[in-house]
Simulated scan of single mutants.
Amino acid sequence: MGRVGERSEPGWGEPDKTPSLTGTSPARQLNRPAELAAAGLVPPERLAALDAVAARYAVAVTPAMADLIDAADPDDPIARQFIPDPAELDRLPEERDDPIGDNPHQPVAGIVHRYPDRVLLKLVHVCAVYCRFCFRREMVGPGAKMLSDAELAEALAYVRARPEIWEVVITGGDPLVLSPRRIAAVVASLAAIEHVKVIRWHTRLPVVDPARITPALVGALKAQGKAVYVVLHANHAREMTAAARAACARLVDAGIPMLGQSVLLRGVNDDPAALSDLMRALVEARVKPYYLHQGDLAPGTSHLRTTIAEGQALMRAIRGRLSGLCQPTYVLDIPGGHGKVPVGPGYLCEAADEEGYEVTDYQGGRHRYPPAG
């Protein structure tokens, strides 16, 4: 695989004067197992096995995440997210290259149109870090292309021609690895489309490289007359460092609301204490928990997936014990492109005598509720 900084495609007009098209400095990342070993994050005797993983799936760990990893802990929750594991080469029959079914809903390059009133706009396929559970792991990584000028123009024309599109969700890859100039250009183009009212950016950057959330980047995200949201991906409370909270504050203080999305991961946040700590850490940073995703059927990720039943039990465990501000919606992206649905536990059922309902409270107590209520 090539390095991010080795790409030479200009794209979107004149190139930025940065080490790479995205503005990401590849020298700051740990991209190879040998670099992870040199940093003391993996033992040298594991290099051959990890090289085999790195030949198949992209590897990148930022200094901010490397500093959080406790190499002495074989079950470190940060390492489980970013350090390659030989188990990634074990692919189950039910796992898919396109686990949530983006491809059938891609009318033009860069656009996924699954729901009537919103589209995904995938600007880039590179990230500051590569999560070991990524559902797009077959299409992201160093050397992956960004949208060309022509492709971006076609994607924007698609949005412009469909007045039912109310929201554009910008994703990738991680779109905030783009330079402020490029971000501002996309925002200006979307802001000029009258029927687009909401622009939503999905990113890990405030956590994994918080220094990149500069005043210039924050300013580039703002759009006159449009609601702009940033959705932060974080999976463990330790990711919400002082620097990460400061990065979130730069966004929120500028008037950009933040939501949080997390993936339920075995050995990372799959117990009530860890999940509670994460949700509280997000709310303390003024990031409203939005989604808790069931792990997708991405290739080589079974060692990180929980069962849905385990996820439902966790959601029951935090219900009533955490503020409503801390409650995400537990969701499953149905394989095959059929959309996202809540799969949390139920609390209401028809009474056995069919006279009204039976409601279960957060402590497991059951209560009757009248049919006309």
Rank of each mutant, 00 (worst) to 15 (best):
R7G: 13
E14F: 15
P15I: 10
D16W: 03
P19R: 08
S20F: 04
L21A: 14
T24Q: 15
T24E: 13
S25R: 12
P26L: 09
A27K: 13
P33L: 01
A38N: 01
G40P: 00
G40I: 00
E45W: 07
R46Y: 14
R46M: 13
L50W: 13
D51K: 10
V59L: 13
V61H: 08
A64W: 04
A66E: 01
D67V: 12
L68G: 14
D76T: 00
D85C: 07
P86Y: 09
D90F: 14
R91M: 13
R91V: 14
I100Y: 08
P104C: 05
H105V: 06
H105L: 12
V108P: 04
H113M: 01
R114M: 12
V119Y: 07
L121N: 02
V124L: 07
V129S: 01
C131Y: 06
R132E: 09
C134M: 11
F135T: 05
V140L: 03
G143H: 01
M146L: 15
S148K: 01
S148N: 01
D149S: 12
A150T: 15
L152I: 08
Y158I: 14
A161C: 11
V168W: 10
V177K: 01
S179L: 11
P180I: 12
A184G: 02
L190P: 00
A191G: 00
K197N: 13
V198W: 14
R204D: 02
L205F: 06
L217F: 09
K222S: 05
A223C: 02
V231S: 02
H233Q: 07
H233A: 02
N235L: 06
H236Q: 04
R238Y: 02
T241N: 02
T241L: 02
A242T: 13
A247N: 02
A249P: 11
D253S: 11
P257L: 14
L259I: 00
L259R: 07
M279A: 05
R280L: 03
E284P: 10
R286V: 11
V287H: 14
L292W: 05
G295A: 05
D296C: 10
T301W: 10
T301N: 05
H303E: 05
I308F: 07
A313D: 11
I318L: 15
I318Q: 08
G324K: 03
Y330V: 06
L332I: 05
G337N: 05
K340D: 11
P342M: 12
V343C: 09
G344I: 13
H367L: 04
